[in-house]
Design a protein around this nucleic acid. Structure first.
Lengths: 214, 214
DNA sequence: TGTACATCAGTGAACGCGCGTTCACTGATGTAC
DNA sequence: TGTACATCAGTGAACGCGCGTTCACTGATGTAC
């Protein structure tokens, strides 16, 4: 078959998670069968149940990994931006540009956001999974909010906007932008929305830009 | 049972659609069984297949109704706003306020957006349904864009933002705002995002507000 | 260095239930003449 | 006004397939002594 290279330990479980994530984002969790995952991973059904207690356990593992990964991505972007510019506002603006570029560089259509997918199927999952999803988005919200508050301490806001709402707007634009990117099959939509958000943030904290573009 | 009142013609089909829409938004399309719908509607399985050719036909009917309904809601809000203020910018700002109020007045948690739900399960549907979803969101985009362009003709934009992106942002905020509203079980999130969008639109077209609030 | 045991990463066969779909049929209402 | 036929809105029974799950078992690798 496809396996010229030897299997490494932990490899199969990872492969199952990768296959499941892609399938869930295309068809939803209920329509993703264990059979198709094991076919893709090249093991038998019992092998699947060695790795996961039941299908709900797969859901939990999927979301745990996704949330952790997303947090790492955002933290990494903020860290890289902080290196480039230590001023909180300009660092944030750099981060948003990096973020937009990251989103623009995805191959093909956007894979989707597992949190949004789970949100629209949450009656399938137990309280633990729903709590995990909430906590994951809360974390994003908190990271943006902390940045915005640090900015506001140095640059008094010129518009009367609530910083919590402005922080939520980042998550909101990402989740909504992914939906539009997918529905229109146009990967430009999401990065453009992020850059528009960047424009909004700039306007909130900075006087109207000088005529020089960027 | 629950039926003291007599059945009207077309009643059963409507009931099936209502039950299906609610179930799909809670669990996804694949996990919504025909059995649960007919149990709710009080008919037998064959009765279901009298109304719908197959399950895919239900999906199409569901989305057709949803898209038409959503278009009507938006058109109605714009029409009401136009009555209150014929200036394009102020009419638009009034419309956004009306929209935020409509979203704030929903009972319980937000029911969800069928377009977003379908977008995350689109491999379950045929091309026709996916096209319909695309067309539905395109329509929203076009309605917002037309308004923004009418505004720009009278109020030259003070910020260099693309009006297409600004139009998309409305759809984006709604879809993303619904996700956050649902995940946090906080119906405030979506209306607050809409009002923040309103603030952004105002800033794009109007000089900084006088100190008087609103 | 050899042996005993434990753990890891699975196999293979069977399970029963729920699912979407089909088919022949029906009783009430509407329409043509 | 009566009769024949058509349409509407379903019923009831059966179908087979795919699904998630269980259970006893296995061969390879790791660890204790």
């Amino acid at each position: 078959m496809t396996d010229a290279q030897p299997r490494k330990a932990g490899d199969t479980r990872l492969r199952l998670l990768d296959l499941a994530e892609a399938a869930v984002l295309e068809k939803g969790f209920a329509a993703t069968s264990i059979d198709e995952l094991i076919a893709g991973a090249g093991i038998t059904k019992s092998g699947f149940f060695y790795h996961f207690r039941d299908k709900g356990d797969l859901a939990k593992a999927l979301l745990e990994r996704y949330v952790a990964h997303n947090q790492a991505i955002l933290a990494d972007i903020f860290a890289r931006a902080d290196e480039l510019d230590e001023d909180p506002l300009h660092g944030f603006l750099v981060a948003l540009r990096l973020f937009a570029e990251t989103m623009a560089d995805l191959p093909g259509r956007h894979p989707g956001c597992l949190s949004a997918s789970f949100c629209y199927q949450d009656r399938l999952f137990d309280r633990e999974v729903r709590e995990l999803n909430r906590a994951g988005i809360s974390c994003w919200r908190a990271m943006f909010r902390a940045r915005l508050e640090a900015i506001a301490r140095r640059y008094p806001p010129r518009l009367a906007v609530d910083l919590g709402d402005l922080a939520d707007m980042a998550s909101t634009l990402v989740d909504g932008g992914i939906v539009l990117s997918r529905v229109f099959d146009d990967r430009e939509v999401l990065p453009r929305q992020i850059l528009l958000y960047r424009e909004l943030v700039r306007t909130v904290f900075l006087p109207p830009a000088a005529p020089t573009q960027d």
